[in-house]
Nucleic acid binder design. Structure first.
Lengths: 198, 198
DNA sequence: CTCGGATGTTAGTCATCATTAACCGATTCG
DNA sequence: CGAATCGGTTAATGATGACTAACATCCGAG
């Protein structure tokens, strides 16, 4: 039996390969600090061949950020709805973000660094997805801490993202499992503090 | 009586002005995404006039990061030595980093984003200062949690930096004082968790 | 008053870089 | 067998941008 072709075009492995290489380079020196030639070179082809896969450098970045934002958000929605209660939902969100940050440090880096270089049609969509992702967290947190005002929960969510996304800076300090456990516990403890007044 | 001229040249206000404007621009679109012309324009002069104050664009960036790293580190050393005990030292470090992050979000952003674009002589010095800053935190934490191995404390320190440096992302969610208090408490709670096993 | 330094200006120069053009081999499919 | 599509190549092209040159102005000191 043959595989059913989904309506979205089958993703060529080259595309993904290019996106991965570009993410690493962008994370190291920024979008404008990397040339098309370099990105091509990183995957064994040279320069203008990229235009067979992307319509331009900015499209490449747009697609990269769009993909990241989508993956984060849909993963969050899935995990949160699967959870039995608020506590489990929070743990699931934490685990998802931690896994992503540990598995794809370059994507995390690019994700919160390069939005300012995305051209306008795509930028709005990315921002929208990022906002939805944050609101997913805020919804879960609201269930756990009903007395905390939403702006406080939003600020706390961003703080937790910062904590979890520190992995690119502390790479190699601890084995992966220990790092995941440490981040999970620290984030949990930081959030537990929200239960208090003010 | 005339003021004694210190050996380091008196800092012209223009230099500082340029550094501030450049920091804001770099934070928004990255080092290579901003032109000399733009930086000049932001302070009312135009383009090549910058070369009267800096020997080049990269020197400008080097000096910016060097200055930030130095300020963070010396402030940390001062605060830590002034403190009576470990608890107070930690609170002082937290307060210092939080103030800096709230007062200079652009500098914070540039500081951990653009090291990869600093040319080699300066890069080493900046890394050194950053390392010393981290070790200052690790020293204080070691006093509080003598059983935790240093890599764990270093990872935790980076995580706390990420948490505190989230302010550029949550700008405007809360008034400054509330934000400072929230971050301080969350960081404290996250670190208190380190006292536990493993 | 005038000399010199500090600070600007505008007009090059030279590299780099994104993008396009023109061309080519392979694979698929009719 | 073609013919087309896919994915590459190398050689323009055109902008942009960092940096330099040449020249002006202001101002303080001798």
């Amino acid at each position: 039996m043959t595989v059913v072709r989904s309506p979205t075009r089958v993703p060529s492995p080259r595309r993904r390969e290019i996106l991965d290489a570009a993410a690493t380079l962008f994370a190291a020196r920024g979008f404008h600090g990397v040339s098309i030639e370099e990105i091509g070179g990183a995957v064994g082809i040279s320069g203008p061949a990229l235009y067979r896969h992307f319509s331009g450098k900015e499209s490449l970045l747009s697609e990269m950020l769009l993909d990241i934002s989508e993956r984060l958000r849909t993963s969050a929605v899935e995990r949160a709805t699967r959870a039995a209660d608020g506590e489990q939902a929070l743990d699931a969100l934490l685990a998802g973000q931690i896994d992503f940050a540990l598995d794809h440090p370059a994507l995390i880096t690019v994700h919160d660094r390069e939005l300012g270089n995305v051209p306008e049609p795509a930028r709005r969509r990315i921002r929208r997805l990022q906002r939805l992702y944050v609101e997913e967290w805020v919804t879960v947190l609201t269930e756990l801490y009903p007395d905390a005002p939403p702006p406080r929960l939003r600020a706390a969510t961003h703080a937790i993202f910062g904590l979890l996304n520190s992995t690119p800076h502390s790479a190699g300090e601890l084995p992966r499992d220990a790092m995941a456990a440490l981040l999970h516990r620290m984030a949990r403890a930081a959030l537990a503090d929200l239960v208090n007044d003010h």
